[in-house]
Amino acid sequence: MTTQSITTISNENLISEVIKLKDEGYRLVQICATTVNSEYEITYSFALDYEFLCIRLMIPEEAEIMSISQVFAPAFLYENEMKDLFGIKINALSLDYQGNFYRLEQKTPYKNQ
């Protein structure tokens, strides 16, 4: 099996790292949020052919992150998903559903209580 590398980067470097990957020809595979204590761990996975790598952000609960949907168009779905399920604040989304992408009875069900 191919190796899986996970690089942790800081919040400010996100867009520049993502643009670098875009230039190398990577495509977006998934974006995933996990609650770790009172922080969120956001993992962006990219693939080029059979290569697979991830970059990771650690953000406090109230922090805002930039959307990467301007660089990778499909990201808007994953980011709306994170926004609806975890309540993570995301700026500059290309298409913002305002929390209505998933029609949920209880808003942000995966958020840390």
Binding site: L95, Y97, N100, F101, Y102, L104, P109, Y110
Partner: peptide, 10 residues
């Protein structure tokens, strides 16, 4: 424009 969430089960 798509929207989903009719069968979200968590």
């Amino acid at each position: 424009i798509p929207s989903i969430g009719f069968v979200h089960r968590g």
